[in-house]
Every structure is written in structure tokens, then in C-alpha cells.
């Protein structure tokens, strides 16, 4: 295949690069997760399943569960925030659309860290909201707005919501509008038309957006690190800690492998669920 045209060989450097710096390290993590940790944090080359068994410790189970809950809630809130916005943009004139899309995209490119920090300025006890409310005399003591699971969720939705808007916008754009007109001609109310025509037809966008948001939130450690307290640590924080402070690389690897498998499994289930409801609707 590669000999017919020399141009085809141009992909080789990129392929080798990704093989050496992406595929190989991923395999290394998989191997590492079955090895032992030495007394001084070094890796001992002996096979063990202990790292995986340790994950079933209720402590980590709880953190995994919390991470999943936060990731699911982030995805749901992102749909609630993002869908109407994408719908509005898709109804605008072409030139205005481009401006709105750029406006939604710009915050997405701004650093996560900086965007979480922006919320710290607003929510901390001497922050913008508390100072404002105190100066009005509405409250005497600052409200505990930061360093709890609510603030973590807010930060997650804030940083990841743009991921949801663009895929939904794309599917709204590609939608066949004639079906919507047909629904109206048949006497559907706007809500019914939306619920039975528009929403099912833009499912691909919602699924793509949800996967992007979900995958990003499940491994997130910046937002909980900056906006969350000690109790709101997510699995990303635990993994980070195993690699950088606790120096238990095998256990950290096992955690991240489980995290990856879990997110793949959920994505698969999500795909299945949406596919199933699609065929059900198709036959109805």
C-alpha cells in the first residue's frame, strides 16, 4: 500500500512519534499497574494484583462514586445550559452566528486554571459577592460559597460547558428542517414539535457533547484542587497525589486504568442507550 505513492510515507514520522510518545507510555501504565511499590517509592518488578484489590477499599470506592456523580451532574447541567444556547445560535442569521460561535469558543481556549481562579476571586470569603453583600448589610458573616462540592460542580460546568454547545449547534445546523415543518403542518404545538422532532434529530450532538464533557470531567483535578476543599477530592486528585506526593506509581497507574475503563464503559452504555431508544422510536 505504501509503495505506490511516496507521499503516503509522509505519515511515518507522525506515526512513529505517536507510537513512541503516546501508545508506548499507555502500555507502560498498564504494565506498571500490575507491579509492586518498593519501600522508597521505587517500582519493584514483581507481578501483583494488589493495586486493583486496593481500589475496592471503601475509601476509594467513595471517591470513585463522588467522581461519577460530579461527572454526571456536570454533563446534565452542561446540556441544560448548552442546548438552549446552541438552539438560539442556530436560529440566528449566518453572520451573527459566526460571532456567537466565536464568543462561545473563546472561553474554552482560556486556561482551566485561570477560569477556576476567576471564581475564587468571586466566591471566597473576602470575595466579590461576600464583600458586596456585607457592604449592603444583608449578611454580617461571609457565606461559605467556596471549597464545597457545590463550588466544584459550578467550576466544572463553567469550564466544560462550551464542549457541549458546539456539537449540538452542528447537529442543529445539519438537521432537516422540512421534518419540523411537517410536524407543524400536522398540527404539533411548538413544544411537541421540539420534543418529538428536533430533540431526537439532534441526539448525535447531545451524545458527542456529553462524551466530551464527561471524559473531561472524570479526570479533572484542577477545578477540585482550586475550588474544592479537602473533602471534595475527586479521583483525578488521588491519582495526581499517588504520582507526585505518595510516590506509589503502580497504584496510581491502576487507578487511572480503572478510570479509563470506567469512562469507556459508560460511553459505550450511553451509546447503546441512545441507539436503543432511537430504534424504538423508529418502529413506533
Amino acid at each position: 500500500m505504501l509503495n505506490k505513492k511516496p507521499v503516503k510515507l509522509l505519515a511515518l514520522p507522525a506515526l512513529l512519534w505517536m507510537g513512541a510518545l503516546f501508545v508506548l507510555p499507555m502500555l507502560m501504565i498498564a504494565v506498571l499497574s500490575f507491579l509492586k511499590r518498593g519501600t522508597y517509592g521505587q517500582v519493584v518488578y514483581e507481578f501483583t494484583l494488589n493495586n486493583y484489590i486496593r481500589i475496592f477499599d471503601p475509601l476509594y470506592g467513595q471517591i470513585f462514586w463522588d467522581t461519577l456523580v460530579v461527572a454526571v451532574l456536570t454533563t446534565v447541567f452542561s446540556i441544560l445550559c448548552g442546548y438552549p444556547l446552541a438552539y438560539y445560535i442556530s436560529r440566528l442569521e449566518k453572520s451573527t452566528q459566526q460571532i456567537w460561535l466565536l464568543l462561545v469558543m473563546i472561553p474554552f481556549w482560556i486556561n482551566f486554571l485561570v477560569r477556576s481562579y476567576a471564581w475564587v476571586i468571586i466566591l471566597r470569603s473576602q470575595g466579590v459577592i461576600n464583600t458586596f453583600l456585607q457592604s449592603l448589610g444583608i449578611i454580617s458573616e461571609p457565606l461559605p460559597l467556596l471549597y464545597n462540592s457545590g463550588s466544584v460542580l459550578l467550576g466544572m460546568v463553567y469550564t466544560l460547558m462550551p464542549f457541549m454547545v458546539l456539537p449540538i449547534y452542528v447537529s442543529l445546523e445539519q438537521m432537516d428542517r422540512r421534518k419540523l415543518e411537517a410536524a407543524y403542518d400536522l398540527g404539533a404545538t411548538p413544544w411537541k414539535a421540539f420534543w418529538h422532532v428536533t430533540l431526537p434529530m439532534t441526539k448525535t450532538g447531545v451524545v458527542t457533547g456529553s462524551i466530551l464533557v464527561f471524559v473531561s470531567s472524570i479526570g479533572m483535578f484542577v477545578v477540585p484542587d482550586v475550588m474544592g476543599g479537602a473533602k471534595s477530592a475527586l479521583i483525578g486528585n488521588v491519582i495526581q497525589n499517588q504520582f507526585l506526593s505518595a510516590r506509589d506509581w503502580p497504584f496510581g497507574s491502576a487507578l487511572s486504568i480503572v478510570l479509563m475503563l470506567l469512562s469507556m464503559l459508560l460511553i459505550l452504555l450511553y451509546f447503546r442507550a441512545t441507539k436503543a431508544s432511537e430504534t424504538k422510536e423508529g418502529s413506533a
Binding site: 508506548l24 507502560m28 471524559v215 479533572m220 491519582i239 487511572s256 479509563m260
Partner: peptide, 23 residues
């Protein structure tokens, strides 16, 4: 080829970071 190339976009960033640290 595209599947392989685009994989890094859908893998949690933290995994890519620690995988490279291990390498």
C-alpha cells in the same frame, strides 16, 4: 490512522500526563 491520531483528544489529559511521566 485518524483513530490513532485523534485518541489523545478523547483520553483524559491527566492520563496522558502521567503516562509520559512514566515513559
Amino acid at each position: 490512522f485518524n483513530g490513532l491520531m485523534y485518541l489523545p483528544i478523547v483520553i483524559p489529559e491527566i492520563m496522558m500526563g502521567l503516562a509520559m511521566l512514566v515513559l
